[in-house]
């Protein structure tokens, strides 16, 4: 890669390359966020049950 333009257009394959990386970003983000949220919700629920 020699220029930003070349990087963004990916030599004419920009739509395919960036869609693929976009799909990967969404999948990786969801895989990380979903279990973290589930775990913190679970902890909170169990704590609430315990207090009384």
């Amino acid at each position: 890669m020699n220029s930003l333009h070349e990087f963004l257009t990916m030599g004419g394959y920009g739509a395919y390359v960036w869609s693929a990386y976009g799909a990967a970003a969404v999948a990786l983000l969801l895989n990380a966020v979903v279990p973290l949220r589930r775990l913190s919700r679970l902890r909170a629920a169990l704590r609430r049950k315990q207090t009384p």
């Binding site: 890669m1 990087f7 990916m10 030599g11 004419g12 394959y13 395919y16 390359v17 693929a20 990386y21 990967a24 990786l28």
Partner: peptide
């Protein structure tokens, strides 16, 4: 690793002589 790998794969790696820049999908595929 993802940051370094994507910098290497999307910027540093040379364009493929047959597939052009489309080959860069390999780094996630």
């Amino acid at each position: 690793g993802l940051a370094a790998g994507m910098y290497g794969g999307l910027w540093l790696a040379p364009t493929d002589y047959q597939q052009g820049d489309a080959f860069r999908i390999i780094y996630i595929h």
